[in-house]
């Protein structure tokens, strides 16, 4: 058996976007921007605990800054689209890399959050769409009434429906899983890894995620428990 088959030079090489590494870098940057949104959105909405006047004024303020709000929305939409397109293309590639599967395969070194990104992502997307239709556009408001501009009322009325709250909490937990992996993974994809700092970063990713998810979940829980009404 001889291995003497000379390789020919071939010119087609992947561009930055076509390369797996380039796509991951795009996912990291867009993911980071979306994370900033998640933090900002939480900070804004926790004002619900300060009463109707405060949060309604905040909502009103967002609507008055018109162009800036739309600029932010467009950036976020572009990020979501790029993030998803890159993921889908990479997933399609990855599913092709093992045409003959293993009869058995053990995962020995990855966490649950690491391995469920393909699941947590799409479910969170479905949630975000539902969430926008419910609270931003007001198209869907199951078993409750939507009053444009009265954010406080919409939150209380919306979350008073138990299954809306349950779906919200479930989706936020998945977002937590997604961020738990993504928050340190983005550094790795951009080439920032350090033997001493990365373990700290992974711990930080866990705690930041816990704080954020707890913050979001406190809102429906607050409504259901009657603290916010």
């Amino acid at each position: 058996m001889s291995t003497a088959v000379a390789g020919q030079r071939e010119n087609r090489t992947p561009s930055f976007w076509q390369s797996t590494n380039g796509k991951k870098a795009v996912m990291a940057v867009t993911g980071a921007i979306l994370f900033l949104f998640v933090v900002g959105h939480l900070a804004g909405n926790l004002q619900v605990f300060e009463g109707p006047a405060k949060i309604n004024a905040y909502g009103h303020f967002l609507r008055t800054i018109g162009e800036i709000l739309w600029a932010i929305r467009i950036i976020l939409i572009v990020c979501v689209v790029l993030h998803i397109v890159a993921t889908v293309q990479l997933a399609l590639l990855n599913w092709k890399t093992r045409p003959v599967g293993y009869s058995r395969k053990k995962a020995i070194n990855s966490s649950y959050a690491d391995r469920t990104m393909y699941w947590s992502g799409p479910i969170v997307l479905a949630f975000v769409i539902f969430h926008l239709l419910q609270f931003t556009a007001g198209y869907i408001h199951p078993e409750s009434q939507f009053i444009d501009g009265d954010i406080y009322h919409n939150i209380v009325a919306g979350f008073s429906v138990w299954w809306v709250s349950a779906w919200y909490i479930f989706s936020l937990l998945l977002l937590g899983f997604h961020m738990r992996h993504g928050l340190w993974s983005m550094f790795q994809s951009l080439g920032l890894n350090h033997p001493r700092h990365t373990p700290v970063l992974k711990q930080a990713a866990l705690w930041i995620t816990i704080v954020i998810v707890a913050g979001y979940i406190s809102i429906p829980i607050g409504v259901l428990a009657g603290w916010v009404r």
């Binding site: 071939e10 087609r12 090489t13 992947p14 076509q18 390369s19 797996t20 590494n21 796509k23 991951k24 990479l90 590639l93 990855n94 092709k96 890399t97 995962a107 020995i108 070194n109 990855s110 966490s111 690491d114 391995r115 990104m117 992996h181 340190w184 993974s185 790795q188 994809s189």
Partner: peptide
């Protein structure tokens, strides 16, 4: 570029390899 031309998949930073 060569790694991509060979048809290997993309890294998802999960660490099964190093394990």
């Amino acid at each position: 570029a060569q790694m991509n031309v060979e048809g290997f998949g993309s890294c998802t930073n999960i660490g099964e390899c190093t394990g």
